[in-house]
Simulated scan of single mutants.
Amino acid sequence: MNNATSCKMPDILKTTDGKERRVGVEIELSGLGYEQLVSIVAELLDGTPTLESRYVSKLQTSMGDFIIELDSEQVKEFDLTDDRVPEVLRELGGQAMEVIDAAAERIVPLEIVSPPLPFSEIQQIEYLVKELREAGALGSREAIYFAFGLQLNPELPDLTPATLIRYFQAFAVLYDWLKAHHQLDISRKFTPYIEPWSSRYTDLLVTEGYSPDQHQMMVDYLESNPTRNRALDLLPLFAHLDKPLLDQYVKDPRIKSRPTLHYRLPDCDIDNPEWNFSSVWNDWVVVEQIANNADDLAELRALFRESRKISLRNLTHSWQETSAKWLQSKGYV
């Protein structure tokens, strides 16, 4: 990771209807108690917290409502009066809850979920991350069982198949570069959450002249990737576009319909002073820039297709290396 602290902006800042594009951010971390985290974020963002339910707080701010929660449905919904709870725990009552809560806050990530933020306000997340680091927040490298992520949900200029395919193609050819550039912690590398799209689908996606309609675009993806566990998860977007078609391939109550991409690849290395939110964001901006430069996208796709062929050069040079050099030569990084 570089030490960039300024969040760059992509070329396309507005949707086709003239509104500023927005992005949702999800940050997983540990090292702070739940109530401590709520208090710190409320102070940093000048917000008013309201406890919505066990381990779920809504923070009203000038930027919209943030949600701060413990990322475990089982812990959030745990009820000592439930007959399924062992009798010994029910008898301990409040003491049992204190032990369970203390253990959960050490192992289960706490999560900050932002409202959709205008691109022009994304720098506020950089400020928030740095202040949380100073307060003692911990990220993925702190323990082998931590696999904390930092997720982006960027709104696109429009949702036409042509636009979506450009973004899909840009991400597919940059996946290896992104994964190497994020320097993923070992705990994240061994999780299934950040898998690439299937090779079969990627090869189809970068084919010269690939231009499906919406239905075919979804079918092509879902036949090879019927899962949430992808570094760029398209299921929330597809739930927004055509839920009945998505349901033919995947039925999962965790899929939330939204007109955005769901970028899950980066880890949250918040306690590393060399790591910055802006570095993650700026890497995504490279995807944005490639997706909206037709000539460069076509050139990179052609190079990617060539890299899939059997040749002496491809045996001695990785696609990650080739794409990194290409990005440098073009001035993207």
Rank of each mutant, 00 (worst) to 15 (best):
D295F: 07
N282C: 05
E274P: 10
F304G: 02
S278W: 01
D213V: 11
L204Q: 15
Y263V: 15
H240V: 09
P266D: 03
V287W: 02
R230D: 05
G209F: 02
D233N: 06
W281C: 13
Q289H: 14
R308A: 09
N292C: 15
P236H: 00
P244Y: 04
S307T: 10
S278I: 02
T207M: 05
L303T: 07
S311E: 00
S257I: 11
E299G: 03
R230E: 01
R254E: 09
V219A: 09
D220G: 04
H215E: 15
M218S: 00
S311I: 02
L312R: 14
Y249W: 14
G209I: 00
V206N: 00
S311N: 08
R254S: 09
P212H: 06
E299T: 11
N282D: 05
S279F: 12
E223K: 13
R254D: 07
T202M: 06
I270T: 04
S224A: 11
R313Q: 00
L205I: 13
Q216T: 11
V219C: 09
N292S: 15
G209R: 02
E223V: 11
L303P: 02
C268A: 15
L232A: 07
Q216F: 07
F304Q: 03
L297Y: 03
D203V: 15
A298Q: 10
R301A: 00
D213N: 15
E274I: 06
R228N: 08
T207Y: 04
H215C: 10
R228F: 09
N272V: 12
E223F: 07
E208F: 08
Q214W: 08
Y221S: 06
E208D: 10
V285D: 00
P212N: 12
D213T: 13
Q214V: 07
M217V: 08
M217A: 13
I290N: 00
T207H: 05
K251N: 10
W281H: 11
Y249S: 04
Q289E: 15
